[in-house]
Structure formats: C-alpha cells, structure tokens
Design a protein around this nucleic acid. Structure first.
Lengths: 198, 198
DNA sequence: GCACCAGTTGGACGAACGTCCAAGTAGGTG
DNA sequence: CACCTACTTGGACGTTCGTCCAACTGGTGC
C-alpha cells in the first residue's frame, strides 16, 4: 500500500468517524481503528492528527456535498424558479435524510477556520464550491431560456451561504417544512435576478 | 456566592474560553481557571461539563448576537430595503470585527445539535431568535410605511438562516465585500416580500 | 545465504482529561 | 465554648489523549 493510498484511506475513515461521533470523538485511535490500521500508521502518513483533519476537510469540500444539486433535470417548460427550487429542495431532502454528514462538514470547517482567524483570506478553499454552483446556475438558466442579471459567481456565493444557513438552522430546530420554505425563498430570490429571453 | 451566581459566572467564563480557544480547548480546568474558581466548583454548580456548555449555549442564544441588528434607525425617507440593508450590514461588520464570538456560538450550537440528531424538534431553542428578528422586521416595515406580504415569522427564519450562512461562508473565505454583498442580497430579497402602503 | 534498507508495527510515555470525594472551613445554634 | 450543618476545596483516580520510537518485517542487491 503506497503512502498516498494510505492517506486516502485514513481520510475516508476520518470522515466516517466525524460523521458518527463528532469532531470531539475523532481521536487518532478511533480513526485508525475505523481504517483497520495500526496506530503508528497515522504519523507515517500524516505529520499530525490536525493535518489529517485538514486533509479530510479538503476531501469533503472536493467531493462536494453540493453535488446533490446536480439534477437540474427540469426543462424549459418548468421555468427557472421551479428548476432552481427543485435542485435546492433536493439538497434539503438530503440534509434531512442524512444530517450527520452536513454536521460533520460544518464541524470540520469551523475547526479549520479557527486556525486562520487572524490570517489573510484563503480563497482557494471555497472557490471550488462557488465555481460548481455557478456552473449549475448557468446551466439552469440556459435550460430555461433565461439570462442572469447578476453574475453567476456572485449568486453562487449567496447560494452557498444560504444553504449553509439552512443547514445550521435545521440542525437547531429540525423543522423540515421551514427548511424547504427557505429553499424556495432562495429560489425565488435568485430567479428575481434573471430575465426571460425571447 | 449563591449557586445561581456561581452558575452565571461559570457560563460567562465558558463563553470566554470557547471564544478564545475553541470548543476543543473548553476543558473543565480551563473554564474554572478563567472564572477564578477551584476545580470542584464546576460539579457543585453543574452536573457535568456538558451541562455547563448547554447552559452556555442557552445564554448566548438569549443575549442574542442578532441584537446587533437592533439599530433600525433609518426612517421613512430611506425606504425599507435600505433600512434592512443597514441593519444586516451592521451584523456583517460585527462579524468581521469579532469573528471569534460568532465562531464560538456556532461551535456550541453544532455541539449541542449532535446530541439531538435523532430526537424530535426542539422548537424552543431558536424560537426566541426568530421572534426577535420578526419584531425587527415589523418595526422596519412600520417605520417605512410598508406591509409584509409574507408573514414576518417566516421571513425571520429565512433571515436567521442567511445570517448563519453569511457567517460560515465568511469564516471560510474571509471575503468582507462578498459578505456585505450577501447581506444586501438578503435585504433586497426580503424587501421583495413587502408592499409600499399609501 | 547474508547484509541491508524502506516500510510497518504496537507498545511506551508523559500530559491532560472528567469526575469524584474526604478533608477543611465558616457561620449559626444550643 | 462546643457542636453541627452547609458549603467549599484541591488532590486523587482511572481513562484517554497525541506523539514517538525501538523492534520487527519482507524485499532486494551483492
């Protein structure tokens, strides 16, 4: 097993542990046990536990929880707002069905953000999310014959923010209906920044 | 010193520690040291460390980080959207100036939410935030001669969600301008749910 | 077949953790 | 003054933590 394979396996195991037991339970021993590795393997693949957790955050950011939005399957007949609402609703449904994963993501993200509170911005980290969502927004507009009056990258950041907020809020109150309502509010607010082409 | 005073002092100390060192650094010893108390005082006032952290979350929810929105000082001449934007921008400015406090709040909230992942909703916890924001929305509408076309409590939850998301997103990318842009996006989206009275 | 080396392992180590409790203290009562 | 109650304390306990390292493994080159 190469070192890179070992790193990937540890990252996958770390994500499972954080999802199941929370960041507080993500100890070196718990993670290597999940990966079926001896304890020493961690410091052979990573300099420290914190390095592993940072790599785990990068991995989960990459594989993109927002990929759930991907199915922009509705066509021209549905309209832009309905198309957006369907995608955003899909994310909420995923959140309700598997909240531990979103919780794990947020825990990892907040943990990493503490180390850089006084540091300059690190644009690279969320850039990929914004780009992916921006592409989805453009795709949805194209599929419904609309154009954006605000640049998609700007709208993408608003979208990511609102989805994060929908997540934390649902985690606090477990109100499924309200979360879906917030998703539709976002869909309508985004659609207000578009024009129907003729 | 009564037990209640002791509890309050410990809660205040816990918040300071979480803000300074993060949830991971909020150990029993660190908190009692911050409070200037002996170690045993914690289990005299609280059943466990987790009970103290839960009480800390309740306290910070109560004292309401959203109180920063309070200054709805703009008048009729400014219009509803501008009034909302001013209040929301004030929150973003507070976030940028003192991110550790918002980070502490989110860490405490996520920590508490993990224990109730499989539990039924706990409406009480965020209810107060929603109510407070709803009152602010009504106040802003009244001050600018507008009426809401969507019930303020519903809009309030969307607002709290978006503010949470603006917070997590800024913590990830430290993009001040983008955070303010999201605040203005929210202000415009809310204002779209209002009518100017005549 | 022997030496060697990169890779791998599990136990050892000191520190820090949450919790508990026996001893100590202060203040009011007989 | 003696006593008792209620409160307060700091140390002790067993566990778990992250990290490190000496021993072990299987391979390859001589």
């Amino acid at each position: 097993m190469t070192r890179e394979e070992r790193r990937e396996a540890l990252v996958a195991a770390a994500l499972v542990v954080v999802e199941r037991e929370g960041l507080g339970g993500a100890s070196a021993r718990a993670i290597v046990a999940e990966a079926g590795m001896p304890l020493g393997a961690l410091h052979y693949a990573f300099a420290s536990l914190d390095h592993l957790l940072a790599a785990t955050l990068d991995a989960v950011t990459d594989q993109e929880r927002l990929a759930a939005e991907a199915p922009i399957s509705a066509g021209v007949d549905a309209g832009l707002e309905a198309t957006l609402a369907a995608g955003l609703d899909a994310y909420v449904s995923l959140l309700v069905a598997r909240p531990a994963r979103e919780l794990a993501y947020l825990e990892l993200m907040l943990h990493a953000s503490r180390d850089r509170l006084d540091l300059p911005p690190a644009p690279g980290r969320y850039e990929r999310s914004y780009g992916l969502v921006a592409a989805l927004l453009e795709e949805a507009a194209a599929a419904t014959g609309c154009t954006w009056t605000t640049p998609p990258p700007v709208l993408a950041r608003h979208t990511v923010a609102m989805l994060d907020g929908i997540t934390t809020t649902w985690l606090a109150d477990h109100d499924d209906q309200a979360a879906h309502a917030s998703a539709r509010f976002l869909a309508a607010s985004l659609a207000a920044r578009s024009l129907k082409e003729d």
